[in-house]
Structures are given as C-alpha cells and as structure tokens.
C-alpha cells in the first residue's frame, strides 16, 4: 500500500522549492532596503561630520561661528534628561505592567485600561508636550526645568514600556510561577524572584526602544519651552537645559553651509550616545538571558 504518491510529490517539488527560494530572496531584499538606507545615511553623516568632530566640539558651547560651535550643553543636557526619564519611566512602566498582569482581575475595566494604554502609544508627541506645558511647567510650577521635561518625556514613552513589559511578563511560563507557589513563596516573592528575572530581557528591549525615542524627540520639548541656545550647564534637575536633537535641528536650519557639517557631527555624537546606551542594556539583557 502506497501512502505517498511519489511521482506526484516529485512533480510538485521544483515549484515548491522555487517558491521557497523566491520567498527567501524577497525577505532578504526587504532587509537589504533597510540596511542600504542606513548605510547611505551613515556614509553621508560620517563624510560630512567627521571633519568637525574633535575634542573641541565636545567641549565648546554652541556658537554663531561654525568652526567654534560645540555640543557640550546639548550632550550634557541629553544625559541629564536620561537621568530623569530612565528611572521614572522604567519604575512606573514596569510597576503598571506587574499590576495589570499579576494583580488586576481580568474584567472589562482592566481591558479598557489596556486598550487605552495601547492607544496612548500612538498619540502624537506634541500632545504630550502640551500636557507637559500645562501640568508640569505651569500647574506644578516646575518651569522649563530638566524635571518638567523629563516627566513629560517619561509620560511619552510610558505606554511603550508598559506594553513591552506586559508582553514579557505574560511570556513567563505558568509552570515557573506554580513551582514557586508550590515551594511556599508569596505572590510578591514569586514576582520578584521568578517572574521579573525571567521577564527582564523583554522588559529591557522595550525600555531601550522607549529611551531611544525619548533621546531623539524634539517636538514635546519645543512646546514645553526648552531653549535652543544656552551657554551654561545645568547643576540640578531644576535648571533649564537643551538637548542634542534640538541643537542639531537648530544647526540644520542655518543658512551657512558650514553649519550643515557641524549638524552632521552632532548627529554622530547622538548616534554614539544611543549605541552606548543600547549596549549597556544588551549587556544586562544577555546576563539574564543565559539562565533559561
């Protein structure tokens, strides 16, 4: 008795293999498009900006003279912003995700909240800027401080972090939790010692994406009223500041050709800062990933 019609299979084989190859090629092409654009971008930025990139560039404040213009205030400002955004958004975001996934009862209210959080992720950033201006800058009288801007940015990236953390927590196998309960652990002990360590790689991936967005965003900061030019460094979170993308935007809008090069150098600094931040997160992620 023949279960498989071998000749029929053989006849279909070349076509199936061809589709297989075409699909592989298609997806490779899709990847290539992204990579190519990135490569062109890198090439342009580096050839334009590398000439202006030196120690002076990092140590000078912005200037009307392109050759003296530097990025110090914006670089330090961006780092300060991260100092506020990273802890605030991660603590609030992961906290919310733990509550929604582990504690909250599954009823229509939690579903409603979850849907709204997902929707918030799609709200234009300028709206968060207006919110920040009304609530933090004016109502709470935080002025145009790092704290006000940082809290605004935290709100902006919060939905992304919550959704990513929720997914990560949900992906932790039930067995692990049950084993923990079986050993007599309380809910909090289970979350802290079992769920969170297992979910950290996913949480961090969301966190990286969110913080990268926060560091590259300009619109909400413009609305909040963060200046484009300062020639001093903030000393506390209550001081005003400026950030890399605003400084870069300022340079690209200048009529002088030389400022375009300075802007490119600024973009390189922003890229390096991003890569540095991401690599820290990747290192932490890899450390935890080995365990399961």
């Amino acid at each position: 008795m023949k279960l498989i019609n071998k000749s029929h299979v053989a006849k279909k084989m070349p076509a199936r293999l061809a589709v297989n190859t075409i699909c592989k090629g298609l997806f490779f092409l899709a990847t290539l498009v992204g990579l190519l654009v990135l490569a062109i971008l890198f090439y342009r930025i580096f050839t334009q900006g590398i000439g202006s990139l030196n120690v002076d560039f990092l140590q000078n404040f912005a200037s009307r003279k392109p050759e003296e213009a530097g990025i110090k205030a914006a670089l330090i400002g961006s780092i300060w912003l991260m100092v506020v955004v990273a802890p605030v958004s991660l603590l609030l975001g992961v906290g919310t995700a733990i509550y929604l996934e582990e504690y909250a009862r599954k009823n229509w209210i939690t579903t409603f909240i979850k849907v709204n959080i997902s929707n918030l992720a799609g709200v234009p950033s300028i709206v968060f800027g207006l919110l920040g201006l009304t609530v933090f800058v004016r109502a709470l009288a935080l002025d145009r401080s790092i704290l006000a801007a940082g809290l605004t940015m935290s709100l902006l990236v919060l939905p992304v972090i919550i959704v990513a953390a929720q997914e990560a927590i949900r992906a932790v196998p039930r067995d692990l939790r049950e084993a923990s309960f079986g050993m007599g652990a309380t809910k909090w002990q289970t979350i802290l010692k079992v769920v969170l360590p297992a979910a950290i790689p996913g949480i961090l991936t969301g966190g990286i994406l969110a913080l990268s967005r926060a560091i590259g965003e300009t619109a909400p900061l413009v609305v909040v009223g963060i200046p484009m030019f300062i020639a001093f460094l903030p000393q506390t979170v209550m001081d005003t500041f400026t950030v890399l993308p605003m400084q870069i935007y300022n340079w690209t809008s200048r009529p002088q050709e030389e400022f375009q090069q300075v802007a490119a150098a600024g973009i390189i600094v922003l890229l390096i800062l991003l890569i540095f931040m991401n690599s820290i997160a990747v290192i932490i992620r890899n450390k935890f990933q080995k365990r399961y």
Binding site: R64, R144, P227
Partner: peptide, 19 residues
Amino acid sequence: EAVAEEYMATQPDVKVSVG
C-alpha cells in the same frame, strides 16, 4: 544666539537662554 554667546564672556554667571 550671537549676543548671548558674547554676553557670556562678560557675565558668566548670568544664565541666558534663547528659544
């Protein structure tokens, strides 16, 4: 920006911000 830049040289403790 140019004015603020020059002013900083004479009065470094005054914090001028230009939006």
